[in-house]
């Protein structure tokens, strides 16, 4: 029982990071209709930038963290401006191909600057674990969940109550009608990419602190697909719940099934779920097919 609890907790930690990255993914899909295959690379870039600031330039972590967010937002803005905006009105498949290209470019760029080796963050959070009843939790896990939850909360409130957030949802709902309200659809698109880059960078920093940083961090972003398919491609609460579920499934698979089959199940389970979900519930738990009044 304690073992299960332990697994669930590490699942929630990883799952909350999935949720965060999934939020960015869903946001771009919802607002602009683009499936962003470069989401995982946003994560990598965030992790490397923060690491470079902390390890090479000796910034204090908090400052490096904030600075990375700024870099991520600028990167999102630049990508939207330079690569995506000229593609407005082009067939969706071209835009998706573009994001795949973008992911290669970002990955290549990171390789060029920082090389292919594994790196680790200097120890930032205390390594003394915390005992909660029978369960032992390392502090970095607590911080990760805390950060992820904080950002998820901020953005949930942003979409619910701020006028920019409501305008973004309106644009996602009906672009032309949004235009007729005087909403600048271009600004909304830009904002979606900025927020997506920002939350991914946060995710990247958190994963980097837990697992170390290397170029294949982008694969972490790939795990976001099962999460968003499970929750529904266009649902923000769905992204959060899907992320948590996939995280926990992974942890349970790692704990119970891996010892039986000799490992690897952890990586496979999310995608098995993906296939099953697509078969039985293609719109996910919370995805809308479209409200249609008959």
């Amino acid at each position: 029982m304690d073992f299960l609890l332990q697994l669930l907790i590490s699942g929630i930690v990883v799952g909350s990071i999935y949720a965060l990255v999934a939020l960015g993914f869903v946001l771009i899909y919802k607002a602009t209709g683009v499936i962003n295959f470069a989401q995982g690379e946003f994560l990598t870039v965030g992790a490397y930038v923060c690491l470079a600031l902390v390890a090479q330039l000796q910034f204090p972590f908090w400052l490096a963290f904030l600075f990375t967010l700024v870099v991520a937002v600028l990167m999102g803005m630049l990508i939207e401006r330079v690569a995506l905006r000229p593609m407005i009105g082009e067939p969706i498949i071209s835009i998706i191909m573009l994001t795949i290209g973008l992911s290669s470019v970002l990955k290549g760029g990171v390789m060029m600057i920082w090389g292919p080796n594994n790196r680790a963050y200097p120890q930032i959070f205390s390594q003394v674990p915390i005992h909660v009843g029978p369960v032992v939790i390392s502090q970095i896990y607590l911080w990760s969940v805390g950060f992820a939850a904080l950002f998820l909360l901020i953005f949930t409130l942003f979409f619910k109550f701020s006028s920019a957030g409501i305008a973004m949802r309106a644009t996602a709902d009906d672009q032309q009608a949004a235009l007729s309200m005087g909403i600048s659809v271009k600004k909304v698109f830009g904002m979606a990419w900025c927020i997506a880059a920002l939350v991914s960078a946060v995710g990247g920093i958190l994963v980097g602190n837990i697992n170390g940083v290397n170029i294949s961090l982008g694969f972490f972003g790939l795990k976001v697909f099962p999460a968003v398919i499970l929750g529904g491609l266009d649902s923000i609460p769905g992204a959060i719940i899907g992320g948590l579920i996939i995280g926990m499934l992974e942890a349970i698979a790692a704990g119970y099934i891996d010892p039986l089959v000799g490992g690897g199940m952890k990586e496979v389970i999310p995608f098995m779920v993906l296939v099953v979900i697509l078969m039985v519930k293609p719109y996910g738990f919370f995805g809308t097919e479209e409200i249609e009044k008959v």
Binding site: I166, A170, D173, D174, A177, I183
Partner: peptide, 14 residues
């Protein structure tokens, strides 16, 4: 062309 997924009040805010 109302925003279907927003509430009445949110539509008015937009």
């Amino acid at each position: 062309r109302i925003f279907k997924e927003l509430t009445v009040t949110e539509n008015l805010i937009v």
